[in-house]
Amino acid sequence: MEVALRYIVPALLLSAAFSLTAYAADMVSSADRTFIAKVSQGGMFEVAAGEAGAAQGDTQDVRDQGATEAHDHTLVGAKLKTIATGAGVTFPDTLSAAFQHELDRLKAMSGRSFDAAYLQDMKVIHAKDGAAFAIEAQSGSDPKLRAFAAETHRIVLRHIGELDAVGP
Rank of each mutant, 00 (worst) to 15 (best):
M1R: 10
M1H: 15
A4P: 06
A4D: 12
I8V: 11
A11C: 13
A11Y: 13
L12T: 15
L14Q: 00
S15K: 08
S15P: 13
S15R: 15
T21R: 12
A22I: 14
A25K: 15
D26W: 04
D26S: 15
M27K: 13
S30Q: 15
D32T: 02
F35A: 06
K38F: 03
V39Q: 00
S40L: 07
S40K: 14
S40Q: 08
G43H: 09
F45Q: 06
V47K: 08
V47C: 08
A48Y: 01
A49K: 02
A52I: 07
A55E: 05
Q56D: 02
T59S: 15
R63T: 14
D64T: 15
Q65H: 14
T68C: 03
H71N: 12
H71T: 09
D72M: 01
K81N: 09
T82P: 06
A84R: 03
G86N: 05
V89M: 00
F91N: 02
F91R: 00
H101T: 14
H101Y: 05
E102F: 00
L106V: 02
M109W: 01
M109C: 02
S110D: 13
R112G: 14
D115M: 14
A116H: 05
A116K: 08
A117T: 10
Y118K: 01
Q120M: 13
I125D: 11
I125W: 09
K128T: 04
K128S: 12
D129Q: 05
G130E: 08
S139K: 07
S139L: 13
S141C: 08
P143A: 14
K144H: 12
R146W: 04
A147S: 11
R154V: 12
L157D: 09
R158N: 12
R158H: 02
H159W: 00
I160Y: 04
V166H: 09
V166A: 14
P168M: 11
